[in-house]
Design a protein around this nucleic acid. Structure first.
Lengths: 349, 349
DNA sequence: TTGAAAGCGATACCAG
DNA sequence: CTGGTATCGCTTTCAA
């Protein structure tokens, strides 16, 4: 039925072992023999049996990239960069070809664990976890345990855009400066003279959410604006609708708002829409700030001030770390910057 | 070292065969025995060896989803819906768990073939190809051949958002009405009284590009506006920059344009940006039309008229077809609609 | 430089 | 309902 390595061997008049060696290219083989084998492969249109190979070699060429939401360009950009970095550094011939596969957890911690198990089952060569973690000790522990088992089994584990897990068995961690970025963003608004600044946070149980909120709050407190911060903060999820609804709520609580900072750009889009519908002009009446600086942000809200995360760079590094092309940073953890992007149209109060 | 099925069998004092049966749940096993086995699995923290299983069973639980650009929400939405539909219809227990993996081809036909080979190598259960195909007979043939080999090997093949390949070995094809949608879009602009309508097309070698362009041109011709259509058409890629550059070019050629239709929403964003920079207001001076109706479109360009493609629905169906949860449409091909969306210039979420 | 043969870990057929 | 066991296709010592 399907053509096997033995068939190729027969056709090339060599042993299966030799064919294997030619295909993997990790062993000396006479040029003439190799030539003969490759021809046979071509003629028979042979395709290696991955499972069999993985079983015998006890590793596969699969690399899993876990994302919260595949429809969100934030993750798309990271995943794309990671995948690209993997094929880049790979040996040309059939050898080191990594199959980068992105897995959509939908933000569900259970699904995340499920995927990790599935990848463990496949004996994945590496796993990249992107995006903030769930802020729950129990789940952190469960994840840490699973990751430990993965690394024990020889799978490389890379965290990208997720805080380091203290004593966890992880190859490398790339973390965004969410706290610092959020802090600088709010400081910028403060420097323009804003004082009544609303904040639309993400889902409460995410580290990203917490860190960004902490950055914002610390800036407010340091500016002597500690009073009533709760009233000026609304929680939601990381989507547009959430920004819309939260804005209406904030305006109800505090009609005198002159600026709103959002957990990310997508949320900021919803903020802008709500303000528009309420008859407030952005940025003339209310300044809006976002986070992530996704490509469409500039069109969607030219008035947006944002913090730019180096998504592409982080993804690429994660990819290289996963394939072992790049050495882990000292201590295993590296923080990639968060850069303030001030667009010309940000208004003063 | 790692715990195997035999270890579990020993601990549960049963044969490996029984353990396998319990795990796969596709064979009668006494409740007491099953109980004992499951406990052993738990206690030993056993994880099935995927490759070994795939080798023995001659199939894996991998499903590949090929996308042109993972950072483009167009594909993210389709892929997300497909993946979701797969886990939905799966048996709860360790059984039918499909590992949906999305593969980023970056729009390169070679990479597409590479991924297909890789998936064939993994003995994937199914493959979903999303997005337009490359409009080149040679590549069409190469792809068709590869797909034939996949289906021969028992892999289900689903095309989503890609035209049917005439005599190809494909399980099912879901195609968008790109031609009809584009035609209606332009007809709408015409009905508003526009006559000098520019068109920003996608990359020349894509079927999506060609079909949308054909729809536009046929509408123009039928309106008696056949003259100088070449001058009013600019080609580019499917990104924002491309829309920006093409718009400048079109305005240079024909400063009197009153409307511009773009190959997709992302391109339309670039069109709007260029118009803004040229001091033309949208939609007062120039009407802009897009395609796909991505979620951020409404914010990015509230004045945009678009054609909405049922991305979510198409993706979900593709997922079900890939897992066999849904029966293929009669003839193997189904066209999912394209709906005209006319916005007023203030948008709600 | 090449070949022979022993696994890798699960599945499924054939008995019982 | 349960147990033995022959594969599945490849990798990898060990010899030659």
């Amino acid at each position: 039925m399907t053509v096997t390595l033995a068939d190729v061997a027969a056709r090339a008049r060599v042993s299966p072992a030799t064919v294997s060696r030619v295909l993997n290219g990790n062993y000396p083989v006479a040029a003439a023999t190799r030539e003969r084998v490759l021809r046979a492969v071509d003629e028979l249109d042979y395709v290696l049996n991955g499972p069999a190979s993985a079983l015998a070699a006890a590793t596969s060429d699969l690399v899993g990239i876990l994302v919260h939401d595949i429809a969100d360009p934030f993750f798309g950009i990271i995943a794309g960069a990671a995948q690209h970095a993997m094929v880049e550094g790979a040996p040309g011939r059939a050898g080191g070809e990594k199959l980068a596969v992105v897995c959509n957890t939908g933000g569900s911690p259970e699904r995340e664990l499920t995927y990790l198990t599935l990848l463990q089952r496949q004996r994945a060569a590496a796993v990249v976890l992107t995006g903030g973690a769930v802020d729950d000790p129990e789940h952190t522990a469960a994840t840490a345990a699973k990751l430990a088992r993965l690394t024990n089994g020889g799978t490389r584990v890379v965290l990208c855009g997720r805080p380091p897990v203290p004593g966890a068995a992880v190859t490398a961690t790339l973390t965004f400066d969410n706290r610092g970025g959020a802090r600088r963003l709010t400081e910028h608004l403060l420097s323009l003279g804003h004082e009544r600044i609303g904040y639309v946070a993400g889902p409460a149980e995410r580290t990203t959410t917490r860190h960004r909120l902490e950055g914002h709050l610390s800036a407010m407190r340091d500016a002597g604006l500690a009073a009533g911060l709760d009233r000026l903060t609304a929680h939601g999820s990381y989507d547009r609708r959430s920004g819309y609804d939260a804005t209406l709520e904030l305006l109800r609580r505090e009609p005198g708002l002159t600026a709103i900072a959002a957990a990310n750009d997508t949320v900021a889009l919803g903020v802008c829409a709500a303000l528009r519908d309420q008859g407030r002009r952005v940025p003339d009446d209310v300044s809006v700030a976002g986070f992530d600086d996704l490509p469409f942000s500039v069109d969607a809200a030219p008035a947006l001030t944002t913090v730019r995360l180096p998504l592409h760079e982080a993804g690429a590094r994660a990819g290289r770390l996963a394939t072992g092309t790049e050495a882990p940073p000292p201590g295993g953890v590296a923080t990639v910057g968060a850069e303030l992007v001030v667009r010309s149209s940000t208004a003063r109060p």
